[in-house]
Amino acid sequence: MLKLDALMMDENELKKEADTAEDVSIINCLGQRYLGCARKKGHMLLSGTPGNGLASYLDGARIDVDGNVQDAVADTMNSGLVTIHGSAGDALCYAMRGGRVFVSGNAGYRAGVHMKAYKDKQSLLIIGGTAGSFLGEYLAGGTIIVLGLNKGDDSPLTGFFCGNGMYAGTIYIRSRVKPVNLSDTLSWSVMSEMEKQEELVPLLSDYVKIFSLSLDAVLAGTFARIRADSSKISKQLYAAV
């Protein structure tokens, strides 16, 4: 594995060096942007704080970050795995098309906006802590899970406008408290134990392993499921002239 120290490197230099190897470990990341952009293969181990646009268009590689990440991480990601042992900034997983992003901490505003799914490409975003406003807006497919492990299942875990305009896909929230101003075109249903086992265990099993959590402890909380209510989605009514 190629080992790099990012401390005194600018982002172009760092990217160029990092691109010379499939497997690379970078310490002391300090805001250098676009690391792992469109990376297809191999393993990237980052520590410090990588900059905006990390893992955008990621196309199969695995990226592990020991630290927090900034904005626009996994933008239009296609496949692969990103694990963040810390928190993420805004616009996480925008228009993500496939692959998995696991965050142990919190996510900022606009996480998971317009994520989608098609055939074997099923995007999955799991946030261990809480998420900011506009989580999963325009969700077109795929799955978002917010665990709120730092909060407990009796607190709100998201900000305003959670899931606004979503028309496919699912958001799972580990809380009995409905997000504030949840749109009335969305359904909110608290899950039964059996549903939790069936739907959540396959999604969470790798996450709990990676972050050394107990699956039972995570599942012990109340989970609710948010989906688009197709009977209520207000379709714009058009009349051709």
């Binding site: 098609y118 055939k119 305009g165």
Partner: peptide, 17 residues
């Protein structure tokens, strides 16, 4: 488009990023 058959394809007015 990589959108499942029969599902709407919505391009939001702004790019949210």
């Amino acid at each position: 488009r990589m959108v499942p058959e029969g599902v709407d394809a919505i391009s939001p007015a702004p790019h949210h990023d």
